[in-house]
């Protein structure tokens, strides 16, 4: 084992400074996708506990994404959001229009190592109500 970045490449005010992790989606990004994989160390396989698991997600653009962006653009009120409009104006309007809350990514579950059943229902409990995301499962660990 080595201490090194897992895949590294350089490629508004801080809203909230959460101690520890953030939303459940953030948690999922981290603890299901990262960390030591114990099967890499333990030759005797893990005992057969049922693990509800979800895989990492990456964002893959699709026609749905495009149409959604187009729709959002169409709804845009350019008199408010056009850059170049003096910030003073927005300020004078009491902070301007509140932007829509950011949409949180949806979670898609796939079968992972170990026997996975019934992952969907429970995980969907917190994925519900989050729309317009375009997650795709990827990178099945092997």
């Amino acid at each position: 084992m080595t201490v090194q970045p897992v895949g590294s490449r350089p490629g508004g005010g801080v809203q909230n400074r959460s101690s520890g992790g953030g939303s459940l989606a953030d948690v999922i990004d981290t603890i299901l996708d990262k960390g030591l994989v114990i099967d890499a160390y333990v030759s005797v396989s893990l005992i057969g506990i049922e693990i509800l698991s979800i895989d990492a997600r990456i964002v893959i653009a699709s026609v749905d994404t495009y149409l959604r962006f187009a729709e959002a653009t169409n709804r845009l009120d350019l008199t408010k959001s056009k850059p170049g409009l003096p910030d003073v104006v927005a300020g004078a309007m009491g902070g301007g229009a509140a932007p829509e809350p950011p949409q949180v990514e949806q979670v898609e579950q796939v079968k992972d190592r170990s026997s996975l059943e019934a992952a969907g229902d429970k995980l969907n409990d917190f994925a519900d109500g989050r729309e317009h995301a375009v997650p795709r499962q990827s990178r099945q660990e092997s």
Partner: peptide, 24 residues
């Protein structure tokens, strides 16, 4: 980036992104 990007800093947390096990 005030009005353009909603930024969050999370941590301290365990170094999930910086340890690599043998097979990985």
């Amino acid at each position: 980036w005030a009005d353009q990007v909603e930024l969050r800093l999370m941590g301290p947390m365990a170094p999930y992104d910086f340890i690599v096990s043998q097979d990985q």
